[in-house]
Structures are given as C-alpha cells and as structure tokens.
C-alpha cells in the first residue's frame, strides 16, 4: 500500500531531547497501564489489548510488507482453539497454553504463507481468505472444537505455578505483558535490516529481487511472524474470556483486523492500537443500541478508504511532519 511509513515522529522543539522524551512517555504509559483496569472494566481493557496485538500483527504484513491478508482470523481463532484445548483438556498452565497456540499459528502461517506468496496483490488477499475459510469449516466440523458451542469454561490457570490468573488484575498484567512483548517484537522487526528489506519489497519488489534479495523468503518470514503474533493474541484472548469460539475464525474477524489497522493508520506502529481501542469501544456501545454493528463497520470502511486513507495516527504523523520539515 502507498501509505507513508516513517514511524518516529521525532519532533524537534516539542521536548528537549530524545531520552527525556522516552522517559516521560514510559512514565506516562506506566501510569496509564496502572490506572486503566481501575478506571475501565479490566475485561474491556484486556479485550482492547488482545485486538491491538492482533491488528499490529496484521499491520506488520500489510503496512510493512505490502501484503493484504484477508485470512488472519485463521491464526487468531485457530490459536484460541489450540490454547483453550491445551488448557482445558491437557491441563497446560497458561504460559504453555499461550505458547502452544502461538506455535500452532506459526505452523499454520508457514503453510498458508508458503501457498499464498505464490500470487500477489488481490490474489494474495483472496487466497488467504479462502484458506482461512477452510479453517472455519474445520473448526465447525472437527471433534475437539465443540462445533457451534466452541470450547467453553477454559481454566485461566496459575501462571508459572505462582500467580492465579482468576484474579482479574493478575490476568490483566499478564495480558499486558504478553502484548507489550508482541509490540516489542514488531517494533524490533520493523526497525531491523529485515524490516528495511520488507519495505524495499513493498515499494518495488522487482527492484528488491534485482538487488539480490530472495524476496519470497522475506515475505514468508514476515507472514509467519505476523501469523504467530496474531495467534498469540488469540490464544491470550481465549484465556481472558475462557472461551474459544467460531466467531474468532470467521472472515468477519479477519475484516476487523483490517478495519482497525485502516482506521488507525496502515504502516504506523501505533495506528492499529488506536484503531483497536476505537473499534472495540464502538462495538461495546453499539451492542445495546439496536444500531446494526456491521453497517457501521462497513460505513467506517468506506469512509476510511475514500477520504481517510492515512488513518488517524498516519494523519497526525503527516501533519506533524509537514509543520516541522
């Protein structure tokens, strides 16, 4: 996609220097993190965090490698099933349940990515969509997924044998930890030489090939990483809600990752987080209002695509940059 991607809105003049700014931001972030579960419902905050990680993982692919996957629900929801099954039936502790979910998503990602990177652009989108629909049907039919009911009453368990996650605050800090880890991985990946190659591929793949990069490998690695992180988000969500269900593997769920990213800003690091917070909040408000959620969601899609392609964070970065050349 053609969105601009500079991710560090370093603003000369706003703050004295980078280190102070980082410290201040970290302090502010910490304050928000402490306050959030007390001001808002912990489950709500955890839901936002899980979706934020899901959208960021999706954006790693779209925003930084230019690959539009329309099938990320397969990783998100598939991992939720695996981690729920692991925790409930195999009695895995939460950390291993999440790990199992993440690993299964990475494996699925490897398979799907290996198939999908053979085609480009909209074909890539259609292939990922079709493959994830296959996962949906498998989830509907396989014996261990519980069909329409899903896997219910998943135990949250005791983290590392020490922390009982049935305490909402303990669960909250765990989710926060998982998500921060995921964000850190994405940030690291984007700023690494690997991330630079991905951007080169996004801008001009033939050129990247002619420079000697084996672009399929980079694309596949990005796909696997993105799938694994989406899976981590889904696995964590299954523990939070103690449920893995068909909702999480539908194509509508893939669409939500797209929407959150688009609304927040494709190719920005913070955009998907902002988008996730907005979309989850909006859905909570609309749930009781009688206004059909999908119509509103679709409308936001149309408006974003037509009038607001940079997204919220993208737009802010763009304006800041223009003001301070």
């Amino acid at each position: 996609m053609t969105t601009d991607t500079r991710t560090d809105p370093a603003q000369p003049g706003l703050l004295p220097d980078g280190r102070t700014r980082t410290l201040l931001l970290a302090a502010a972030g910490f304050a928000v993190a402490v306050a959030a579960p007390h001001v808002l419902y912990p489950v709500f905050v955890m839901k936002v965090l899980c979706f934020a990680l899901f959208a960021c993982a999706f954006n790693l692919l779209l925003g930084f490698a230019g690959l539009l996957s329309f099938g990320h629900a397969a990783f998100f929801g598939g991992a939720a099933y695996v981690s729920a099954h692991a925790a409930k039936v195999w009695g895995f502790p939460p950390e291993l349940a999440i790990l199992a979910g993440t690993a299964s998503a990475a494996m699925t990602g490897l398979l799907f990515g290996w198939l999908a990177i053979r085609r480009q652009g909209i074909y890539f989108a259609m292939i990922t969509l079709a493959l994830s629909q296959m996962v949906f049907f498998l989830a509907l039919q396989l014996p261990f997924t519980g069909g329409e009911d899903g896997i219910q009453a998943v135990p949250r368990g005791v983290l590392f044998g020490l922390v009982d996650l049935n305490d909402p605050l303990a669960m909250y800090w765990t989710v926060l930890g998982v998500c921060l880890f995921g964000f850190a991985v994405i940030r690291r990946a984007v700023h690494s030489p690997f991330g630079q190659v991905l951007k080169a591929i996004r801008e001009n793949e033939p050129r990247a090939i002619s420079l000697g990069y084996r672009t399929e490998r980079y694309k596949l690695l990005a796909f696997v990483l993105s799938a694994a992180l989406a899976g981590m988000a889904g696995a964590t969500k299954a523990l939070v809600f103690q449920l893995a269900s068909l909702t999480d593997v539908t194509w509508q769920m893939s669409g939500e990752a797209v929407l959150m990213t688009l609304l927040g800003g494709v190719g920005t690091l913070a955009g998907p987080v902002v988008g996730a917070a907005l979309v989850v909040t909006l859905q909570n408000h609309l749930a009781d209002s009688g206004v059909p959620v999908t119509v509103v969601t679709g409308f936001i899609f149309v408006v974003c695509v037509l009038l607001f392609r940079r997204g919220i964070v993208g737009e802010i970065e763009h304006r800041l940059r223009r003001r301070a050349p």
Partner: peptide
C-alpha cells in the same frame, strides 16, 4: 488512481453495509 487493494477494501465495506442492513 490509488493502490488496487483499496478497491477491494471499499467493496468489502459495501458488502458489510449491504448485508448488515438487510439482516437488520
């Protein structure tokens, strides 16, 4: 004039609106 993927996203949004509206 922009990336073709936006056309896909637009029609996806339209699909959600149309189907959501009829379901409502």
């Amino acid at each position: 004039s922009v990336d073709h993927l936006y056309g896909l996203l637009l029609t996806f949004g339209l699909a959600l609106m149309i189907e959501g509206g009829f379901r409502h």
